[in-house]
């Protein structure tokens, strides 16, 4: 009956997407009148934080064989925790690691998997929920009759709700097996001190209109002032001005921040597909006919090389006064 949420950690601590998933699971459990249990793996002792988002019990795994992420082992650990708590619904964040474990769990348990979920269910029998499809060009209502479910939540779609609960932690054990270790992690390269694109509240993005990699200084400066992540259009990553991990759009990363600032990007349908779920869009483009203005909330027709430095100054002034 219970709901189990996998509370993902990055380098030992939780990120925003985790609190969102935990909060989702807590609300879900509340609606169906059951308990919610969180599972954390290789978290550095801040598990009790999860209480704030509505869980009463946190299972922690601190097994040496699970210090680094391993999708087979983590999936099996999550399954073991679900079995021991009798949970039939498992909630996961639709992050890269979440996507790497969710289908394994679903296939092993014969559970229904619904990914890219955007909202709490509109019905519980049958379980019906809204998800993204067609690369954010549309939404769909998915339903399942299955008792066993794995629900994967789109980061930044549902806010984390704080409660005044507190959580008790309990250690849970799972040791990776030989079959879990068929793949071994050799190295992890972290992009330098960046905000994760899918989780960022604000994203500053540049297109081919910026004319060269050297012109990204002002984009980075603007992003830093706003506490934003940086992104780019596909051709910019293809030419090599920016890393592929920053490419947003239909064939790149799909994002839905509070604010998306598109600079020197035309607004091709494939680009829009990945960003039009942003709650507010600002477009800066020299061409008044750029299709992006049709999808924007705020537009400036102008040269990025003049507008962006002015915007940086205006923000600095704003910050000083606020």
């Amino acid at each position: 009956m219970a709901v189990l949420v996998y509370a993902e950690s990055w380098s030992g601590s939780f990120k925003k997407a985790t609190f969102e998933a935990v909060s989702y699971a807590a609300q879900l459990a509340d609606k169906i009148g059951t308990e919610v249990i969180a599972l954390t793996i290789a978290n550095n002792n801040n598990s009790t934080q999860l209480g704030k988002y509505g869980v009463s019990k946190v299972f922690t795994i601190a097994n040496d064989s699970l210090t680094t992420f391993n999708n087979q082992a983590y999936a099996n650990a999550i399954i073991a925790a679900a079995e021991s708590t009798g949970a039939d619904t498992i909630v996961i964040s639709n992050t890269n690691n979440g996507k790497a474990v969710a289908p394994i769990i679903a296939a092993k348990r014969g559970a229904a998997l619904i990914t890219n979920v955007l909202d709490l269910p509109s019905s519980h029998s049958p379980f019906t929920v809204k998800r993204k499809t067609f690369s954010s060009k549309a939404f769909a209502q998915y339903s399942t009759e299955a008792t066993q479910k794995v629900i994967s939540i789109t980061p930044n779609a549902i806010g984390a709700i704080e409660t005044n609960k507190s959580a008790a932690t309990e250690s849970f054990d799972y040791t990776a097996t030989e079959s879990d270790n068929r793949l071994s992690s050799v190295s992890v390269d972290k992009a330098k001190g960046k905000i994760t694109l899918t989780e960022a509240e604000i994203v500053v993005s540049g297109g081919r209109g910026l004319k060269g990699a050297e012109n990204w200084n002002m984009i980075e400066e603007l992003a830093e002032l706003l506490g934003a992540a940086t992104a780019c259009s596909k051709p910019v990553a293809d030419i090599g001005w920016r890393p592929h991990g920053e490419h947003v759009g239909q064939t790149g990363i799909a994002i839905n921040p509070e604010l998306y600032i598109a600079i020197g990007i035309s607004g091709a349908i494939q680009h829009l597909a990945g960003v039009n779920a942003s709650k507010n869009i600002v477009v800066i483009n020299t061409d008044a006919e750029a299709p992006f203005f049709k999808a924007a909330d705020y537009g400036i027709i102008g040269d990025a090389f003049e507008v962006v430095p002015k915007l940086i100054e205006a923000l600095k002034t704003y910050k000083m006064n606020n």
């Binding site: 992420f69 890269n96 690691n97 190295s187 992890v188 390269d189 989780e199």
Partner: peptide, 8 residues
């Protein structure tokens, strides 16, 4: 991976 890459 979110914000980087991993070799396996």
């Amino acid at each position: 991976i979110d914000g980087g890459k991993e070799t396996l």
